[in-house]
Amino acid sequence: MNDMRLAERTVDTQGKPIKFSCRDVQVYYGDKHAIKDVNVDLEDKTVTAFIGPSGCGKSTFLRCLNRMNDTIDIARIEGKMILDGEDIYDRRVDPVQLRARVGMVFEKPNPFPKSIYDNVAYGPRIHGLSRNKAELDGIVEKALRGAALWNEVKDRLNETGTGLSGGQQQRLCIARAVATSPEVLLMDEPCSALDPIATSQVEELIDQLREEFSVVIVTHSMQQAARVSQKTAFFHLGNLVEYGTTDDIFTNPQDPRTESYISGKIG
């Protein structure tokens, strides 16, 4: 099945440095081989979209990037994932430190049952990013501004985060992730639980986040991938089928499977 894998072609990196470099990544859930031989280079300050039919392994691969799969007992990962020259699966790496640099936003908004302020301040507090209250206030404000939420919540920072609307909750979760000033931001179908208006707000936000972070977003919506991403990777049955600039993938797919997916024949 080797020929079925990545369609070889040169990808225009537009001169941006590589942030994450993955080589021969395999993921097993118990006996199930969930990710097969994935090689991919993710660029800094770029939105990369992972697309593919459900169960294709795109979320699994995303969760490998900040070792969230460590929390699943039966998951086993092989291969190398190099973040800025360091393998994140090296034995010396503490996943706690890694996750401070590679933040994550989940499918369902999951604000903690605490105040809005405490939600955003949670990361900076546990990682000790501030020396005093004033500095923490600054971080929280900056993160909330970064998540385009500041104007909506600045007067009720002490209200509980679960009281916000769905779109606000998801932006709060993004703010929470941004507050630890990560380098990479992983987003696992961040809009699937949101209504269209909230979705467009979050998409707009993702576009802005690209100025500061490398963003990797898993989405089941091709339109969304086309709207927000510069690079797109198509996964199918655990294989990375095709990877390239979003324009290329959508207008000129090389692999027949990609084409079928894009044109809606499989999914």
Binding site: L83, V93, R101, S130, I139, R145, Q208, E212
Partner: peptide, 21 residues
């Protein structure tokens, strides 16, 4: 809102990243 420009790193950790190792 817009993502404010300015120094990327805030707080104690400063501008340089320590090694993950």
């Amino acid at each position: 809102d817009a993502v404010s420009a300015g120094p990327r790193r805030v707080g104690a950790q400063g501008a340089t990243r320590k090694s993950l190792l």
